[in-house]
Design a protein around this nucleic acid. Sequence first.
DNA 1: CGTTGGCACTCTGATCGTTCGAGTGCCAGA
DNA 2: TCTGGCACTCGAACGATCAGAGTGCCAACG
Lengths: 338, 338
Amino acid sequence: MLSERRLEVLRAIVQDYVGTEEPVGSKALTERHRLGVSPATVRNDMAVLEEEGYIAQPHTSAGRIPTDKGYRLFVDKLAGVKPLSSPERRAIQNFLDGAVDLDDVVGRTVRLLAQLTRQVAVVQYPSLTRSTVRHVELLSLAPARLMLVLITDTGRVEQRLIDCPSPFGETSLADLRARLNSRVVGRRFTDVPPLVQDLPESFEAEDRGTVSTVLATLLETLVEEAEERLMIGGTANLTRFGHDFPLTIRPVLEALEEQVVLLKLLGEANESGMAVRIGHENAYEGLNSTSVVSVGYGSGGETVAKLGVVGPTRMDYPGTMGAVRAVARYVGQILAES
Amino acid sequence: MLSERRLEVLRAIVQDYVGTEEPVGSKALTERHRLGVSPATVRNDMAVLEEEGYIAQPHTSAGRIPTDKGYRLFVDKLAGVKPLSSPERRAIQNFLDGAVDLDDVVGRTVRLLAQLTRQVAVVQYPSLTRSTVRHVELLSLAPARLMLVLITDTGRVEQRLIDCPSPFGETSLADLRARLNSRVVGRRFTDVPPLVQDLPESFEAEDRGTVSTVLATLLETLVEEAEERLMIGGTANLTRFGHDFPLTIRPVLEALEEQVVLLKLLGEANESGMAVRIGHENAYEGLNSTSVVSVGYGSGGETVAKLGVVGPTRMDYPGTMGAVRAVARYVGQILAES
DNA sequence: CGTTGGCACTCTGATCGTTCGAGTGCCAGA
DNA sequence: TCTGGCACTCGAACGATCAGAGTGCCAACG
């Protein structure tokens, strides 16, 4: 176990490096932090920290920089979550309150988060699988062509075209619409399948094919939409990454275009708490020199989706975590209101 | 007017510079192109071209590079549009044919375009103002609460919640729905307003308020959605931009996040033809060192939206233009089919 | 008049050595 | 266990030199 002072030294190194972006040496440390010991002592501590793998030197006789392991310790033990200032909080609330629909909420959130953290922001659309059905509508477009419209309680709308195996009368349509709605409105998506399973049986033989098709499409929509959408923003902040540009930035841009990768990344967030993945802790190779801070959000204690930021491992963890958490909370509130 | 050979020299310079990314000198030119004259002659021609502003030297005694004006001349007079190879065409078609809905079409298009041109691709969603109404649906969610669902012929769905000034019976609702649809289905959005103006008059006094509200919401939806959505992709290709990274790339990334800027950019495309904006021809300052190639697409001779790519001024214009045009055509076909 | 070969000139970029300074490791002493 | 001192290392910055590519100009030629 590292002594109190060594941890203090590590904290100082992380803070300085995050601020200056340059390797930090023993002398500079003692000058900028009131450690109460001499540079020589700090040097010894640094030697230990290096041996333990918390810090490293880019080349002999330069200062030290934190390793992923060092950041990990910093985040876990040394750093709190820095709460936002109250003007910041007010600004967040004002900005988000202006949103007019779900797209707008997500759009504003992503811009807000990017601006606040000065990093790349990723916001997942509220999940359908956790949502409930507000309404299912069936429209007849042609004798054997229907449109299915699904409306969720989060305000999202999905529509599908359906080619019926046989013509389907207006009466049957109204009937199906009514029965369907009476069974599924207010239900969670995951609960729907068993509730509609026996519906075809109660229809005339000639309509059963169509009813089955409609149900199949409905269920398919629920499942398909479980692969959820994302919005990202603040990519311009990538330019503040480091000196060795193209090499670092390219894989990150590539990763950001892979929805699957991002979803997995966010998915790693713990249900309730905040998740911080540092450097090589990220499964995706292109993000080995970045850290991801993510958290779930939702209304009323229920997580409906996640959001987070992607930035260089050399980031201001307390500040970023504070911003991410605050934004998640306010978005949850907004969703609860609407 | 420039002589034939001088134009030929300009063409050679553009081609070489696009290929090598390095200033091109007189000697190298005569070696790589069969111009039939000596380097000295080429030097004279270059001097003239420089005086006319078509090319420039980064510093004294280095090769020449084309100016924006030079690229402009190249595009207008010297370069054709390079058609894609037939394997490429087949690949495009196969890839786009797999799309399942509108989002997917746009998503695939943007990825395709980015990959084909190795640049940043921008695709605008098919415009609502040019679209026609396929169906308008009204749902009663609560006694005084309606939902309006608008379905377009391009498969897009928009929905709005409406709070009615007074309760609205099922009979009136069905009536309104029927009349509304009989008037607007198949109509272009821009033609809708006069067609529904007198609808409230034909209803009972107590329902007129609600009918007006519904109509107002409908018209509002048409207008609001005229501010259209975009999808972008291939941002990782920005890393191939140039050597002086952060400075060039940052404003581009910023521009790409400004939907308004991008829409304006695409909007500059001529109705029918392809538009190429080179360097400073772009109104937006951040894009002064990029070129934008855009074109409208649509089904049946009608332009419903635009798409294009953003890349360095030093780009392969014939190839890029060929790819953009081909993709636009195939997307138009796909839209016509669905 | 357009084209050509020759020639002197001018820069940039690469290479190399030197220097400077920050930072380290180690050791002896408090 | 901490501290001050000291020798050492190594990278970044600076400057001088050099080679090469490319230019502009000129005189000669068809």
